[in-house]
Design a binder for these strands. Structure first.
Lengths: 360, 360
DNA sequence: TTGTAAGCGTTATCAG
DNA sequence: CTGATAACGCTTACAA
């Protein structure tokens, strides 16, 4: 045992020994001492600074590995005044759409050296506000946000800007703010879908969706309305229901609706949310309606279940990962540009996906 | 204008003026100067230290608000040697199961003052390794991980431990490591499900699932095997397929399988993944089989589409949010306990959900 | 190409 | 109950 210990110690420098025994974390100072150079040189070498000799770079990297050095990005962030971390706030992470946007964001941000702190607002402005506070406290390099349904004032977002942290909004945006944004062209997606239903022979189309105080539902409604008007149909005469975007909310609406309108049901129902479309379908099926023969149904946003259910649901795909990539790219541009205001707006065109539920 | 400026300035202290003009960030030093006390007192006041007078606490909080102070948790983390941030690594965030676990984790960690950095391994050990590095670099207060399918060695996880960062594994665990874990009792879930199918009269049941090198698929297979053995059926005679846990992989398996076994199809197919069950169902339906009349199908993990498809899928629910909460609680215990090793293992019992696909 | 020195904003320790 | 001081680990002018 003693021999082992002796041999073991013999192989180590005093410096390494000290580090191992004190079980403190290894720093660039330790690497510096080990090589009889200064910490600044080590720092530069590790960051691949152009004015450092190749030979010392290699030397530094090797001893870093030997000492089992792990960089401390907290210290770096403090010094630089900003973290290599980006905050992202979404209403709910377990929505297929948002989790795909996140994947898209990471695919751009990770290679650029950033990592994500993800927060959920749970559709509450209060939680959104708290999220903003922790992100500012963490001095994130940027904030990406899709605002909650409740959010109608923007003081919390302006607080982000006042800390000179770039902000990019996506999907659920607020034109009131002068920041970069990525939006889906919901008007166009909804318009295309409505035109398709009209082409299939529908004369009356009901609309159901989320609250139109949210820009996305307002836009989806506008696209629907535009298509109807062009077809000479007065949308005033149409049924319109807005409620929470859940299967149950739609079911609660459709059951009494069927009861009341047995004798003059619309030819089609356009739901501005796939989840609500599911509720509508279940309500109609339990009342004995055949889809699409008796009534056509369409949803919006191409949730994964849309092609698994029966009948397969006609809907609109939103290229969620692409939206994440676009959002992340705008953020990187903002970060590069420092304080020059180069706010941009990217608009993504969604794609109509025709399936059985409207395919008479 | 001049009068306005004069009045405006008149209301401000020199200190506040300085801060506004220099647009530097407000620190506890600024609050201290404003009140003629020291930064330490301010720090204590903001952290609700017991030995600070109530009156000064209020004074500090008020001026903090007045100066628009936002705490800098990076500085605090550097000083304390550890961040109030927890890292979480999952294979894929857009899996319903994992996104729900995340929600559960946050519901415990956020109130405790921590926030999450979420990383995706994308089922790659290489990416998992990189994730670990960034989490160590960020000096997170803990790491939560469900390992990738590829992960068979654990040096990277031991690196976490060597930095005295507590590690908790969940769902996909590795018994090789001496850490706290939360697991689903997959053996029991799978056993219950198989018993149910047997009770419905099946004599032959095929098994399809992910690679059995992963503990969860091994366990699900074991539960299946145990039930068969108890029923006196030799599982050696059963069909067993393992592949990637996707709809397409299952479809690629089932099509030639039907072709070959037209005349002696099993009475039931138990898929250890809902996605694979979907593939199986689609393959059988396109070949004209009726479910459950001709053949019964069951899945595992109760994906949201399971109750939306036709026939509704019998499966096993895993209480994903509960798993997240349990995981987070174990982590908090570890953090409290500092270096005393109190590794625990929590086992959650899943629940059989009987639906149409096995309900003859 | 490398060294020197200051500082990022907190908090812990010790002292009073 | 509060103050003074040092330190956490890194980056970056400026100097050499």
């Amino acid at each position: 045992m003693q021999t082992f210990a002796f041999n073991f110690l013999y192989l180590l420098s005093i410096q390494m020994l000290y580090i191992i025994m004190s079980k403190k974390q290894v720093t660039i100072q330790d690497i510096a001492k080990e090589l009889n150079i200064t910490a600044s040189t080590v720092s530069r070498a590790l960051n691949d600074h152009p004015k450092i000799k190749q030979s010392t770079k290699e030397l530094v990297q090797n001893t870093a590995k030997k000492l089992n050095y792990q960089p401390n990005s907290i210290a770096a962030s403090l010094r630089k005044g900003r973290a290599t971390t980006v905050g992202m706030i979404v209403p709910r992470i377990n929505r297929h759409f948002f989790s795909n946007v996140i994947t898209g964001v990471e695919s751009v941000l990770n290679p650029a050296g950033y990592n994500l702190i993800i927060c959920q607002s749970e559709e509450s402005i209060e939680k959104e506000n708290e999220n903003i506070n922790t992100l500012i406290a963490n001095r994130v390099g940027g904030v990406l946000i899709s605002i909650s349904i409740e959010t109608k004032t923007f003081a919390h977002l302006e607080r982000v800007l006042s800390h000179h942290i770039p902000l990019v909004m996506f999907d659920r945006i607020a034109d009131e703010l002068d920041v970069s944004m990525v939006e889906n062209d919901d008007v166009s997606g909804s318009y295309d879908l409505t035109k398709h239903i009209l082409a299939k022979g529908a004369k009356t189309i009901a609309w159901i969706g989320g609250p139109r105080s949210s820009n996305i539902y307002q836009n989806r409604y506008n696209g629907y309305k535009k298509a109807l008007e062009e077809a000479g149909i007065n949308p005033k005469a149409m049924t319109c229901f807005e409620g929470s975007i859940t299967l149950d909310s739609a079911l609660d609406f459709i059951r009494p609706f069927i009861e009341k309108n047995k004798n003059n049901m619309p030819d089609a129902i356009f739901s501005a949310s796939d989840y609500m479309a599911m509720g509508v379908i279940q309500g109609l099926q339990e009342a004995g309606y055949k889809i699409p023969e008796d009534i056509m149904i369409a949803g919006y946003s191409n949730e994964p279940f849309a092609e698994l259910i029966s009948p397969k649901l006609t809907t609109v795909d939103q290229f969620s990962e692409e939206m994440g990539r676009a959002t992340a790219k705008l953020l990187l541009e903002e970060i590069e540009a420092k304080n020059e205001y180069i706010h941009k707006k990217t608009t993504l065109k969604p794609k109509l996906i025709i399936r059985e539920s409207t395919d008479k």
